[in-house]
Nucleic acid binder design. Sequence first.
DNA 1: AGTATATTATACCGATCAGTATATTATGAT
DNA 2: ATCATAATATACTGATCGGTATAATATACT
Lengths: 193, 193
Amino acid sequence: MVRQREFDVDKALDAAMQLFWEKGYEATSLSDLTSAMGIQRPSIYSTFGDKKELFEAALRRYTSAHAAGIRAKLQHHPSVKEAFRVFFEGLVEEEYAGTGNRGCFCINTMVELAPHDAKFEILTREHEMYLAAMFQETIEKGLRSGELQAGLDAKALAQTLVVSLIGLTVIMKARPERAFVEHSVETMLSLIK
Amino acid sequence: MVRQREFDVDKALDAAMQLFWEKGYEATSLSDLTSAMGIQRPSIYSTFGDKKELFEAALRRYTSAHAAGIRAKLQHHPSVKEAFRVFFEGLVEEEYAGTGNRGCFCINTMVELAPHDAKFEILTREHEMYLAAMFQETIEKGLRSGELQAGLDAKALAQTLVVSLIGLTVIMKARPERAFVEHSVETMLSLIK
DNA sequence: AGTATATTATACCGATCAGTATATTATGAT
DNA sequence: ATCATAATATACTGATCGGTATAATATACT
Protein backbone atom coordinates (compact mmCIF):
# COMPACT_ATOMS: atom_id res chain seq x y z
CA MET A 1 0.00 0.00 0.00
CA VAL A 2 2.89 2.33 0.69
CA ARG A 3 6.37 2.90 -0.50
CA GLN A 4 8.85 1.13 1.70
CA ARG A 5 11.94 2.53 3.36
CA GLU A 6 15.08 2.14 1.26
CA PHE A 7 17.68 2.42 4.01
CA ASP A 8 18.51 0.20 6.98
CA VAL A 9 17.36 2.02 10.12
CA ASP A 10 19.81 0.13 12.28
CA LYS A 11 22.78 0.85 10.05
CA ALA A 12 21.81 4.52 9.83
CA LEU A 13 21.52 4.79 13.60
CA ASP A 14 24.86 3.09 14.00
CA ALA A 15 26.47 5.64 11.69
CA ALA A 16 24.90 8.47 13.69
CA MET A 17 26.20 6.88 16.89
CA GLN A 18 29.74 6.67 15.56
CA LEU A 19 29.63 10.34 14.56
CA PHE A 20 28.11 11.65 17.81
CA TRP A 21 30.52 9.47 19.75
CA GLU A 22 33.50 10.95 17.96
CA LYS A 23 32.46 14.58 17.71
CA GLY A 24 29.87 15.17 20.40
CA TYR A 25 26.45 16.73 20.06
CA GLU A 26 27.18 20.38 19.24
CA ALA A 27 30.06 19.75 16.87
CA THR A 28 28.03 17.31 14.76
CA SER A 29 25.87 19.02 12.14
CA LEU A 30 22.87 17.71 10.27
CA SER A 31 24.99 17.79 7.13
CA ASP A 32 27.59 15.61 8.81
CA LEU A 33 24.81 13.24 9.78
CA THR A 34 23.19 12.95 6.35
CA SER A 35 26.61 12.22 4.83
CA ALA A 36 27.53 9.58 7.40
CA MET A 37 24.10 7.98 7.53
CA GLY A 38 23.73 7.96 3.74
CA ILE A 39 20.22 9.35 3.85
CA GLN A 40 18.54 12.70 3.27
CA ARG A 41 17.53 15.20 5.89
CA PRO A 42 13.76 14.53 5.84
CA SER A 43 14.42 10.82 6.30
CA ILE A 44 16.24 11.57 9.53
CA TYR A 45 13.41 13.70 10.86
CA SER A 46 10.65 11.31 9.85
CA THR A 47 12.46 8.29 11.25
CA PHE A 48 14.26 9.55 14.34
CA GLY A 49 12.82 12.98 15.15
CA ASP A 50 14.99 16.02 15.65
CA LYS A 51 18.73 16.17 16.35
CA LYS A 52 18.39 15.72 20.11
CA GLU A 53 16.11 12.70 19.71
CA LEU A 54 18.49 11.12 17.23
CA PHE A 55 21.31 11.74 19.66
CA GLU A 56 19.34 10.10 22.44
CA ALA A 57 18.62 7.06 20.29
CA ALA A 58 22.31 6.84 19.40
CA LEU A 59 23.32 7.08 23.06
CA ARG A 60 20.82 4.40 24.09
CA ARG A 61 22.21 2.16 21.38
CA TYR A 62 25.70 2.80 22.72
CA THR A 63 24.93 2.20 26.38
CA SER A 64 23.24 -1.13 25.82
CA ALA A 65 26.07 -2.37 23.61
CA HIS A 66 28.64 -0.99 26.04
CA ALA A 67 27.04 -2.64 29.06
CA ALA A 68 26.72 -5.94 27.24
CA GLY A 69 30.37 -5.79 26.20
CA ILE A 70 31.56 -5.17 29.74
CA ARG A 71 29.33 -7.90 31.11
CA ALA A 72 30.84 -10.34 28.64
CA LYS A 73 34.38 -9.34 29.56
CA LEU A 74 33.73 -9.68 33.28
CA GLN A 75 32.31 -13.16 32.78
CA HIS A 76 35.11 -14.25 30.50
CA HIS A 77 37.44 -15.34 33.30
CA PRO A 78 36.50 -17.60 36.19
CA SER A 79 38.78 -15.60 38.47
CA VAL A 80 37.25 -12.28 39.47
CA LYS A 81 40.63 -10.65 40.01
CA GLU A 82 41.79 -11.84 36.63
CA ALA A 83 38.59 -10.66 34.99
CA PHE A 84 39.02 -7.12 36.33
CA ARG A 85 42.70 -7.12 35.43
CA VAL A 86 42.04 -8.18 31.86
CA PHE A 87 39.23 -5.66 31.61
CA PHE A 88 41.23 -2.65 32.81
CA GLU A 89 44.44 -3.60 31.04
CA GLY A 90 42.50 -4.22 27.85
CA LEU A 91 40.97 -0.78 28.17
CA VAL A 92 44.41 0.81 28.29
CA GLU A 93 45.76 -1.39 25.52
CA GLU A 94 42.83 -0.49 23.28
CA GLU A 95 43.28 3.25 23.76
CA TYR A 96 47.02 3.24 23.18
CA ALA A 97 46.98 0.81 20.27
CA GLY A 98 44.97 2.85 17.80
CA THR A 99 45.48 6.41 16.72
CA GLY A 100 41.86 7.35 17.27
CA ASN A 101 40.67 8.10 20.77
CA ARG A 102 36.95 8.37 21.20
CA GLY A 103 36.80 7.27 24.80
CA CYS A 104 33.30 6.50 26.05
CA PHE A 105 30.23 8.03 24.41
CA CYS A 106 28.38 8.04 27.73
CA ILE A 107 31.17 9.87 29.55
CA ASN A 108 31.41 12.40 26.73
CA THR A 109 27.68 13.00 27.13
CA MET A 110 27.98 13.31 30.91
CA VAL A 111 30.40 16.17 30.37
CA GLU A 112 28.74 17.86 27.41
CA LEU A 113 25.01 17.51 28.04
CA ALA A 114 24.18 16.09 31.48
CA PRO A 115 24.82 19.36 33.37
CA HIS A 116 22.35 21.25 31.15
CA ASP A 117 19.79 18.60 30.27
CA ALA A 118 17.98 16.55 32.89
CA LYS A 119 17.14 13.79 30.42
CA PHE A 120 20.80 13.09 29.77
CA GLU A 121 21.73 13.52 33.41
CA ILE A 122 19.33 10.67 34.18
CA LEU A 123 20.29 8.56 31.19
CA THR A 124 24.01 8.74 31.87
CA ARG A 125 23.56 8.24 35.61
CA GLU A 126 21.49 5.13 35.01
CA HIS A 127 24.19 3.69 32.79
CA GLU A 128 26.93 4.29 35.34
CA MET A 129 24.75 2.83 38.08
CA TYR A 130 24.20 -0.21 35.91
CA LEU A 131 27.95 -0.63 35.46
CA ALA A 132 28.40 -0.30 39.23
CA ALA A 133 25.78 -3.01 39.77
CA MET A 134 27.59 -5.33 37.34
CA PHE A 135 30.90 -4.69 39.09
CA GLN A 136 29.26 -5.36 42.45
CA GLU A 137 27.75 -8.64 41.26
CA THR A 138 31.13 -9.73 40.00
CA ILE A 139 32.82 -8.86 43.28
CA GLU A 140 30.10 -10.67 45.24
CA LYS A 141 30.68 -13.73 43.09
CA GLY A 142 34.32 -13.62 44.13
CA LEU A 143 33.31 -13.29 47.75
CA ARG A 144 30.99 -16.30 47.53
CA SER A 145 33.64 -18.42 45.86
CA GLY A 146 36.13 -17.46 48.52
CA GLU A 147 38.52 -15.91 46.00
CA LEU A 148 38.12 -12.47 47.60
CA GLN A 149 38.66 -11.93 51.28
CA ALA A 150 35.56 -11.80 53.45
CA GLY A 151 34.64 -8.41 54.85
CA LEU A 152 35.45 -6.65 51.63
CA ASP A 153 32.76 -4.02 50.90
CA ALA A 154 31.51 -5.08 47.47
CA LYS A 155 29.35 -2.03 46.89
CA ALA A 156 31.96 0.56 47.88
CA LEU A 157 34.62 -1.22 45.85
CA ALA A 158 32.36 -1.47 42.79
CA GLN A 159 31.59 2.24 42.98
CA THR A 160 35.28 3.02 43.33
CA LEU A 161 36.06 0.96 40.26
CA VAL A 162 33.44 2.82 38.25
CA VAL A 163 34.96 6.14 39.32
CA SER A 164 38.37 4.80 38.33
CA LEU A 165 37.09 3.60 34.99
CA ILE A 166 35.74 7.06 34.26
CA GLY A 167 38.93 8.74 35.40
CA LEU A 168 41.07 6.45 33.28
CA THR A 169 38.92 6.93 30.22
CA VAL A 170 39.05 10.71 30.52
CA ILE A 171 42.76 11.06 31.32
CA MET A 172 43.62 8.94 28.30
CA LYS A 173 42.09 11.66 26.12
CA ALA A 174 45.06 13.79 27.15
CA ARG A 175 47.40 10.95 26.15
CA PRO A 176 49.59 10.79 29.25
CA GLU A 177 52.58 8.48 29.26
CA ARG A 178 51.30 4.95 29.34
CA ALA A 179 53.06 4.26 32.64
CA PHE A 180 50.80 6.87 34.22
CA VAL A 181 47.62 4.92 33.58
CA GLU A 182 49.31 1.57 34.14
CA HIS A 183 50.36 2.64 37.62
CA SER A 184 46.81 3.73 38.31
CA VAL A 185 45.36 0.46 37.06
CA GLU A 186 47.80 -1.51 39.18
CA THR A 187 46.91 0.50 42.28
CA MET A 188 43.19 0.13 41.60
CA LEU A 189 43.47 -3.60 41.12
CA SER A 190 45.30 -3.84 44.45
CA LEU A 191 41.99 -2.86 46.09
CA ILE A 192 40.47 -6.16 44.90
CA LYS A 193 42.02 -8.47 47.43
CA MET B 1 49.19 59.43 21.96
CA VAL B 2 46.44 56.84 21.68
CA ARG B 3 43.02 56.24 23.08
CA GLN B 4 43.19 53.92 26.04
CA ARG B 5 41.22 50.76 26.65
CA GLU B 6 37.98 51.32 28.55
CA PHE B 7 37.47 47.81 29.88
CA ASP B 8 39.45 45.71 32.35
CA VAL B 9 41.18 42.96 30.35
CA ASP B 10 41.42 40.73 33.39
CA LYS B 11 37.74 41.08 34.29
CA ALA B 12 36.73 40.45 30.68
CA LEU B 13 38.89 37.32 30.49
CA ASP B 14 37.43 36.11 33.75
CA ALA B 15 33.90 36.51 32.37
CA ALA B 16 34.89 34.56 29.26
CA MET B 17 36.40 31.85 31.46
CA GLN B 18 33.21 31.50 33.49
CA LEU B 19 31.18 31.17 30.32
CA PHE B 20 33.45 28.66 28.56
CA TRP B 21 33.71 26.73 31.81
CA GLU B 22 29.96 26.45 32.09
CA LYS B 23 29.00 25.89 28.46
CA GLY B 24 32.09 24.56 26.72
CA TYR B 25 33.68 25.80 23.52
CA GLU B 26 31.14 24.95 20.82
CA ALA B 27 28.04 25.92 22.77
CA THR B 28 29.42 29.37 23.60
CA SER B 29 28.82 31.93 20.85
CA LEU B 30 30.54 35.22 20.21
CA SER B 31 27.28 36.93 21.13
CA ASP B 32 27.24 35.13 24.48
CA LEU B 33 30.79 36.30 25.00
CA THR B 34 30.22 39.97 24.16
CA SER B 35 27.26 40.02 26.56
CA ALA B 36 29.11 38.35 29.41
CA MET B 37 32.36 40.24 28.88
CA GLY B 38 30.57 43.57 28.48
CA ILE B 39 32.57 44.53 25.41
CA GLN B 40 32.02 44.60 21.68
CA ARG B 41 33.09 42.02 19.18
CA PRO B 42 36.05 43.91 17.68
CA SER B 43 37.44 44.49 21.17
CA ILE B 44 37.55 40.75 21.70
CA TYR B 45 39.38 40.13 18.44
CA SER B 46 41.87 42.96 18.90
CA THR B 47 42.62 42.01 22.50
CA PHE B 48 42.45 38.22 22.59
CA GLY B 49 42.46 37.03 18.98
CA ASP B 50 39.84 34.65 17.66
CA LYS B 51 37.47 32.41 19.60
CA LYS B 52 39.96 29.57 20.01
CA GLU B 53 42.68 31.90 21.26
CA LEU B 54 40.30 33.47 23.73
CA PHE B 55 39.32 30.01 24.90
CA GLU B 56 42.96 29.10 25.34
CA ALA B 57 43.61 32.24 27.39
CA ALA B 58 40.58 31.45 29.52
CA LEU B 59 41.74 27.88 30.07
CA ARG B 60 45.25 28.99 30.99
CA ARG B 61 43.76 31.40 33.48
CA TYR B 62 41.70 28.57 34.91
CA THR B 63 44.49 26.03 35.20
CA SER B 64 46.85 28.37 37.04
CA ALA B 65 44.14 29.40 39.51
CA HIS B 66 43.03 25.78 39.87
CA ALA B 67 46.54 24.51 40.54
CA ALA B 68 47.20 27.29 43.04
CA GLY B 69 43.95 26.51 44.84
CA ILE B 70 44.76 22.84 45.15
CA ARG B 71 48.28 23.57 46.31
CA ALA B 72 46.92 25.81 49.04
CA LYS B 73 44.44 23.17 50.18
CA LEU B 74 47.09 20.45 50.30
CA GLN B 75 49.34 22.66 52.42
CA HIS B 76 46.55 23.73 54.73
CA HIS B 77 46.85 20.75 57.05
CA PRO B 78 50.10 19.49 58.59
CA SER B 79 48.84 15.91 58.29
CA VAL B 80 49.04 14.62 54.73
CA LYS B 81 46.20 12.16 55.26
CA GLU B 82 44.04 14.90 56.69
CA ALA B 83 44.94 17.25 53.87
CA PHE B 84 43.82 14.76 51.21
CA ARG B 85 40.69 13.91 53.19
CA VAL B 86 39.66 17.56 53.51
CA PHE B 87 40.46 18.12 49.84
CA PHE B 88 38.38 15.25 48.49
CA GLU B 89 35.51 15.66 50.94
CA GLY B 90 35.44 19.39 50.23
CA LEU B 91 35.24 18.62 46.54
CA VAL B 92 32.13 16.50 47.08
CA GLU B 93 30.59 18.97 49.50
CA GLU B 94 31.10 21.80 47.02
CA GLU B 95 29.42 19.96 44.17
CA TYR B 96 26.42 18.82 46.18
CA ALA B 97 25.92 22.10 48.02
CA GLY B 98 25.11 24.36 45.08
CA THR B 99 22.63 23.81 42.32
CA GLY B 100 25.14 24.59 39.61
CA ASN B 101 27.59 21.95 38.53
CA ARG B 102 30.38 23.11 36.33
CA GLY B 103 32.91 20.53 37.33
CA CYS B 104 36.43 21.26 36.14
CA PHE B 105 37.10 23.43 33.10
CA CYS B 106 40.22 21.45 32.26
CA ILE B 107 38.42 18.11 32.35
CA ASN B 108 35.61 19.52 30.21
CA THR B 109 38.25 20.58 27.70
CA MET B 110 39.96 17.20 27.81
CA VAL B 111 36.69 15.64 26.70
CA GLU B 112 35.54 18.28 24.21
CA LEU B 113 38.73 19.47 22.52
CA ALA B 114 41.79 17.42 23.46
CA PRO B 115 40.95 14.48 21.16
CA HIS B 116 40.71 16.77 18.12
CA ASP B 117 43.21 19.51 18.90
CA ALA B 118 46.83 18.78 19.78
CA LYS B 119 47.27 22.13 21.48
CA PHE B 120 44.60 21.32 24.03
CA GLU B 121 45.73 17.75 24.38
CA ILE B 122 49.11 19.10 25.50
CA LEU B 123 47.70 21.89 27.62
CA THR B 124 45.32 19.64 29.53
CA ARG B 125 47.88 16.88 29.91
CA GLU B 126 50.40 19.31 31.35
CA HIS B 127 47.87 20.48 33.89
CA GLU B 128 47.03 16.97 35.02
CA MET B 129 50.74 16.11 35.21
CA TYR B 130 51.25 19.19 37.33
CA LEU B 131 48.50 18.08 39.69
CA ALA B 132 50.08 14.63 39.88
CA ALA B 133 53.42 16.22 40.74
CA MET B 134 51.81 18.24 43.53
CA PHE B 135 50.12 15.14 44.89
CA GLN B 136 53.40 13.27 44.74
CA GLU B 137 55.26 16.01 46.61
CA THR B 138 52.61 15.98 49.30
CA ILE B 139 52.82 12.21 49.67
CA GLU B 140 56.62 12.37 49.80
CA LYS B 141 56.36 14.94 52.56
CA GLY B 142 54.25 12.46 54.49
CA LEU B 143 56.84 9.76 53.87
CA ARG B 144 59.68 11.97 55.12
CA SER B 145 57.78 12.93 58.25
CA GLY B 146 57.02 9.29 58.92
CA GLU B 147 53.25 9.85 58.78
CA LEU B 148 52.94 7.52 55.80
CA GLN B 149 54.31 4.04 55.84
CA ALA B 150 57.67 3.52 54.18
CA GLY B 151 57.62 1.59 50.92
CA LEU B 152 54.51 3.35 49.69
CA ASP B 153 54.91 4.23 45.99
CA ALA B 154 54.41 7.99 46.03
CA LYS B 155 54.31 8.39 42.26
CA ALA B 156 51.86 5.57 41.58
CA LEU B 157 49.61 6.72 44.40
CA ALA B 158 49.68 10.32 43.21
CA GLN B 159 48.74 9.25 39.70
CA THR B 160 45.93 7.10 41.07
CA LEU B 161 44.59 10.02 43.06
CA VAL B 162 44.57 12.22 39.96
CA VAL B 163 42.62 9.56 38.07
CA SER B 164 40.20 9.35 41.00
CA LEU B 165 39.83 13.11 41.12
CA ILE B 166 38.92 13.14 37.45
CA GLY B 167 36.52 10.24 37.85
CA LEU B 168 34.81 11.86 40.81
CA THR B 169 34.47 15.19 39.07
CA VAL B 170 32.92 13.61 35.99
CA ILE B 171 30.54 11.22 37.74
CA MET B 172 29.19 14.09 39.83
CA LYS B 173 27.91 15.66 36.61
CA ALA B 174 25.42 12.81 36.50
CA ARG B 175 24.42 13.58 40.11
CA PRO B 176 24.61 10.09 41.59
CA GLU B 177 23.47 9.58 45.17
CA ARG B 178 25.97 11.25 47.42
CA ALA B 179 26.79 7.95 49.13
CA PHE B 180 28.16 6.73 45.82
CA VAL B 181 30.93 9.30 45.68
CA GLU B 182 31.46 9.23 49.43
CA HIS B 183 32.14 5.49 49.29
CA SER B 184 34.60 6.08 46.50
CA VAL B 185 36.37 8.86 48.36
CA GLU B 186 36.63 6.69 51.45
CA THR B 187 38.09 3.82 49.45
CA MET B 188 40.56 6.11 47.68
CA LEU B 189 41.70 7.64 50.96
CA SER B 190 42.31 4.15 52.33
CA LEU B 191 45.15 3.87 49.81
CA ILE B 192 47.02 6.62 51.67
CA LYS B 193 48.30 4.62 54.59
C1' DA C 1 -4.31 0.06 -14.55
C1' DG C 2 -5.47 3.32 -11.07
C1' DT C 3 -5.15 5.19 -6.56
C1' DA C 4 -3.80 6.13 -1.88
C1' DT C 5 0.18 6.52 0.90
C1' DA C 6 4.67 7.01 2.51
C1' DT C 7 9.48 7.78 1.24
C1' DT C 8 12.49 10.16 -1.28
C1' DA C 9 15.24 14.26 -3.29
C1' DT C 10 15.68 19.12 -3.93
C1' DA C 11 15.46 23.37 -2.54
C1' DC C 12 14.41 26.44 0.54
C1' DC C 13 13.40 28.89 5.33
C1' DG C 14 14.76 32.38 8.96
C1' DA C 15 18.21 32.40 12.43
C1' DT C 16 22.60 32.36 13.89
C1' DC C 17 27.39 31.45 13.31
C1' DA C 18 32.50 33.44 13.44
C1' DG C 19 34.75 37.15 11.81
C1' DT C 20 35.48 42.01 9.74
C1' DA C 21 34.97 46.65 7.22
C1' DT C 22 33.71 51.15 8.26
C1' DA C 23 33.27 55.06 10.63
C1' DT C 24 33.18 57.45 14.97
C1' DT C 25 35.31 58.71 19.29
C1' DA C 26 38.77 59.51 22.61
C1' DT C 27 43.55 60.13 23.74
C1' DG C 28 48.43 62.08 24.04
C1' DA C 29 52.22 64.14 21.66
C1' DT C 30 53.50 67.97 18.97
C1' DA D 1 44.54 73.28 18.24
C1' DT D 2 46.04 69.69 15.21
C1' DC D 3 47.14 65.26 14.12
C1' DA D 4 48.36 60.35 14.49
C1' DT D 5 46.80 56.41 16.73
C1' DA D 6 44.00 53.05 18.72
C1' DA D 7 39.71 51.71 20.87
C1' DT D 8 35.03 51.83 20.21
C1' DA D 9 30.13 50.95 18.22
C1' DT D 10 27.39 49.68 14.35
C1' DA D 11 26.44 47.09 10.79
C1' DC D 12 27.57 43.97 7.69
C1' DT D 13 29.86 39.63 5.35
C1' DG D 14 29.34 34.81 3.41
C1' DA D 15 28.67 30.48 5.46
C1' DT D 16 26.36 27.35 7.99
C1' DC D 17 23.01 26.12 11.38
C1' DG D 18 18.57 23.10 12.44
C1' DG D 19 14.39 22.28 10.39
C1' DT D 20 10.69 22.01 6.66
C1' DA D 21 7.69 22.83 2.40
C1' DT D 22 7.24 20.99 -2.01
C1' DA D 23 7.18 17.88 -5.47
C1' DA D 24 8.65 13.65 -7.58
C1' DT D 25 8.87 8.63 -6.93
C1' DA D 26 7.89 4.05 -5.63
C1' DT D 27 4.91 0.65 -3.54
C1' DA D 28 0.67 -2.33 -2.36
C1' DC D 29 -3.94 -2.68 -2.47
C1' DT D 30 -8.26 -2.40 -5.18
